[in-house]
Structures are given as structure tokens and as C-alpha cells.
Design a protein around this nucleic acid. Sequence first.
DNA 1: CTCCCGATAT
DNA 2: ATATCAGGAG
Length: 211
Amino acid sequence: MRPDPRLIEKLFTRFEADKPDPKTELDFINPYTLVVAVALSAQTTDKAVNKATKPLFDLAYNPFDMVALGEEKLSAMIASIGLYRTKAKNVIKLSQILIDSYGGQVPLNRDALMALPGVGRKTASVVLNELNIEPAIAVDTHVYRVSHRLGIADANTPDKVEAQLMAIIPQKWLTRAHHWLILHGRYTCVARKPMCEQCIVADLCPKISVS
DNA sequence: CTCCCGATAT
DNA sequence: ATATCAGGAG
């Protein structure tokens, strides 16, 4: 694996000028709603999640109100989202754990977050990074695909790709890099038909596509 | 590895 | 019709 340092330099310098302070496109109003929104976003677009969480968070923006709402009603409110039954179950369980073990607050460390049902490494990374607890590269479908195509990672699991990215990306960009890679993947280096004509680093891209 | 799963783009 | 979308758990 020999990533081209000029590619990262060019891509991130452009993003830094264009979008110096990127943040998640998921709507949330506090750490709790951030955890829930990210957990709901698995295999689902941010737009679809936001559409469902808008009325939901109006009713329940803390674990107490969420548990009071109950799994049945929650399930109905997020039925437009993929994998909604599993997610409803997880959100209720997770909320109950926050009440029982953390006084209704969200524990802001990786181990505690990952112990919550429906919260894996990727979701924990998003939360920790978004709340500026610690720099983290959440390797989702976009980051995985983009990293492979750009030739800045070649490992075959999200965890290994994360390690490669952490090692390659300059410290000053670590916190924002994950947002930038997602934005690049979501709007330019899209899965089906990448828009290489409008890509800032097309000239440096090895153009290795991934399935 | 399989299952969970609706909305949207192609 | 089918691939894809801020994955995680059994």
C-alpha cells in the first residue's frame, strides 16, 4: 500500500477551503438524539432518517421519554426507515440502559458506547468525533469505497481501513477527514456512477473500483 | 455468513 | 428489476 500523499493533500486542502467546519448531515439536538440518529442511519440515507426523527425527537429527545413512548409507537414512527424493527428494539433497550446505568446521560467513551445495543464501532466513532471527544475515522460504506478507489487504503475490513487511514492522514485533518471522505463519496465518488469529471483529484486517482 | 428492510436512484 | 443507503448482531 503506497498511497499518494499529493492526493490527500489536494483533496483535503480543497475541502478545508470549501468546507472548513464540516458536520454531520443527521439532525440532532443533544448527545442522546445524536446516538439515536446515527444508530437509525444504518443502511439508510441521512435524509430518510431526518424525515423520521423530526417528529420523533419532538416527542422524545431523552431516554426517559423514549422508553415512555414504547417500542410499538417508536416502531410505527420509524417504519419508513430500513431495518426499523431491529432499530426500534435497540433504541428502547439502549435508552433503558442509559437510564439504569448512566442517569439518563450518554457515556462519552468508546467502550461504553459500543456496549449499547445497536451501537458498533462505526456509530461510536461518529458520536465521539462529532462531539469532539476524540478524533475518529468512522468507516462507513462511503469511506470504505472512497478510500479504496483513491488508493489510500486497501484493507478488506472497516477496522483495518480505519487503522490505515489513521496512519496516513495528517493530524491537523484527522477530525474533519472522515466528514470530507463521506462528502466526497456522497456527492462525487458515488457508488454506481462516480462523477470523475467533477472530481478534484481525478488526475491523481488510480481509479480502482470496488464492489 | 446471514438476517434485518423501506425509500430512492439507476 | 436491482443496487445502494453514515451497520450491527447472532
